[in-house]
Design a binder for these strands. Structure first.
Length: 553
RNA sequence: GCGCCCGUAGCUCAGCUGGAUAGAGCGUCGGACUUCGAAUCCGCAGGUCGGGGGUUCGAAUCCCUCCGGGCGUACCA
């Protein structure tokens, strides 16, 4: 918020400089305002002089001097402006500006950090999209948490967000699921059965079969058609998946069934559209899509010689529907094993005349589970994987969410089960939550025992907040709205996590060094307002990543 | 072979469109509770930013190349 104000002033000065003939407009939009790493370099700095000097073959420090002169009139915001290093212009902001932050935060309350940069734009976030063949794995969990956090960020920045789950309840996988369930059912009855070679071996199938047996006895023993078994299993598994997602506080606005694409003829239509454009041909009994026309190495099969489509075709049809449904931006969250489909789908939508730059794919790398310092090998088929449910049982939703968001999507994630379970009190999520609980506790202490009367935030003596620690906390809070915007636009929720950890660190340190409530009444009042503001920022930040902000722990 | 991702402290990772002395947590070691919650804090130690070139005022960040790891490279999803 302060940074944006400064940038405005700077832009004015730039224009003035052009008007006065000090420089040309060549550097417009190329310079930036940054937050220096070292406090000695000010609260903010700009490289404007160096950029201009580069364009105009002048000395950076001379240009910087001219800029400083232009800035001389902006004393309300700045207490000091100086030229440093190779030509940086460093800004020192008036304390009064920082001291106004609690006012802004408290007035905005739960709206602090929200913005409207996405106003009027509809965005579709597709994530999880697991087919109902088994419980959600930790990989799905990462995706669920990531997608949800991204959706929250986009909502916070004003986008009209739809969360969508795309699934397929038809096809080969589901047939195998039905066969597996039937085999287990027959086993329960003590009848001979043939478990499919590539069947699903998880215990959840046994449970489904057992329930089925209890309900219908042996009335299905001669049923050769696996449909009834498939549907039974699908229903149970989907219920399970939804329970798991609910436990994490994740909800979808819409479930999109791949099968409906076939029923509505949309898959066939894609083929004929592409064929009309000459981008499809028949060879070896299969139908091929000329992906080479879109810069790829070789063409891809979209309909197998058996007449069944490959996964690419419905994916293309699905994405075309996303466009047709009128979204301005489509965000797909995929596991890195789906990387191969991305170029095909994008080529498909481009071939159909849509702007594929409206699709952003967030690929997240795998989660490897570590137990006893060793990697746990996992496979859905073999059912030797750890489910998200099990993880939730052990550490709870807050830790799961926090852990999955601690790393950016494109780094692999080692989930240390030992740390997450046995040593959970050392988990960083508690560090942040404890910060919030502590803030609450201070306010409670005052309300219940000390009773320092708190004037309105407008009349509170906030100018007394002048300790370096206090000013740093104020600065951190002031940077929060920009952080939310940038995290949203870049789809990088992990930055919120890092910010919260940083802020918690600042607060804990401050807490241990200085007392909020003391005999000095005006100072206590100012600090109580600081605490209130800080608590709001914690709440808003935690809420943005879907982690609870507890008052007590 | 080719494509994408990753390689930063003992371990796990941050580092926004290239910026001025590279950060945090965990771990090690040593300290701090008669005061708002010690699930906390303070301090010490720890680095050729995988290697080598290049681009420029300036590179962990951009380009090239090599090395190492992951995921793909299906008429599986």
């Amino acid at each position: 918020m302060i940074k944006a104000r400064l940038k405005e002033r700077l832009d004015q000065c730039f224009v003035e400089g052009v008007k006065e003939g000090s420089w040309t407009g060549a550097a417009e939009g190329l310079y930036s305002v940054e937050e220096p790493k070292h406090a000695a370099h000010g609260d903010f700095s700009t490289n404007m002089a160096m950029i201009i000097a580069g364009k105009e073959k002048k000395k950076p420090r001379d240009v910087a001097g001219l800029l400083v002169d232009l800035l001389a009139s902006h004393t309300d915001l700045l207490k000091k402006v100086e030229v440093a290093g190779p030509g940086f212009v460093n800004f020192f902001v008036n304390n009064a500006v920082w001291q106004s932050v609690p006012r802004v935060v408290n007035e905005a309350g739960s709206d602090f950090g929200l913005s409207d940069i996405g106003k009027g734009k509809r965005v579709l976030v597709e994530f999880v999209s697991a087919n109902p063949t088994g419980p959600l794995s930790v990989g799905h969990g990462r995706q669920a948490v990531l997608g949800d956090a991204i959706a929250r960020l986009l909502s916070a920045t004003g986008y009209d967000v739809t969360r969508e789950y795309y699934y397929n309840d038809a096809g080969r996988q589901m047939r195998v699921l039905g066969e597996s369930t039937r085999a287990r059912y027959l086993e329960q009855l003590g009848l001979p059965s043939e478990f499919p070679e590539d069947g699903y071996q998880g215990e959840y199938i046994d449970e489904i079969a057992l329930e089925l047996k209890d309900e219908v006895n042996d009335s299905l023993k001669d049923t050769e058609d696996v449909t009834v078994f498939k549907e039974r299993a699908e229903k149970a598994i989907f219920k399970d998946i939804n329970n798991t997602l609910n436990r994490m506080g994740i909800h979808f606005d819409h479930y999109y069934n791949e099968h409906s694409l076939y029923e509505d003829g949309l898959v066939d239509d894609v083929v004929s559209c592409l064929r009309d454009k000459g981008l499809v041909y028949d060879s070896d009994g299969a139908v091929w899509f000329k992906t080479t026309e879109f810069g790829q190495e070789k063409d891809r099969v979209i309909i197998k010689s058996t007449g069944e489509p490959t996964y690419r075709l419905p994916d293309i049809a699905y994405h075309r529907e996303k466009f047709r449904r009128g979204y301005d931006w489509m965000v797909d969250i995929f596991g890195s094993d789906h990387i191969a489909t991305v170029p095909d789908v994008l080529a498909g939508v481009r071939a159909l005349g849509y702007d594929d730059s409206k699709v952003t794919v967030v690929l997240h790398q795998f989660v490897t589970l570590m137990r006893d310092g060793k990697q746990v090998k996992m496979s859905t088929r073999k059912a030797n994987f750890i489910t998200i449910d099990e993880l939730l049982d052990e550490v709870g939703p807050d830790v799961v969410r926090f852990f999955f968001l601690m790393r950016k999507a494109d780094s692999q994630l080692d989930f240390d089960l030992d740390l997450a379970t046995t040593q959970s009190q050392e988990n960083p999520v508690f560090y942040v939550q404890y910060g919030h609980a502590r803030l609450t506790s201070i306010l409670k202490k005052n309300e219940e025992t000390v009773n320092i009367e708190l004037p309105s935030v407008d009349s509170a003596p906030l100018h007394l907040l002048e300790l370096p620690e206090e000013l740093n906390i104020l600065k951190a809070m002031a940077s929060y709205p920009d952080l939310v915007k940038n995290s949203a636009l870049d789809l990088t929720p992990h930055r919120i996590i890092f910010f919260l950890q940083e802020l918690a660190g600042q607060f804990h340190s401050y807490y241990n060094k200085h007392r909020v409530i003391s005999d000095d009444i005006p100072l206590s009042q100012a600090r109580l307002w600081l605490v209130r503001a800080l608590r709001i920022v914690f709440r808003n930040g935690l809420n943005l990543v879907g982690v609870k902000a507890p008052d007590t722990m």
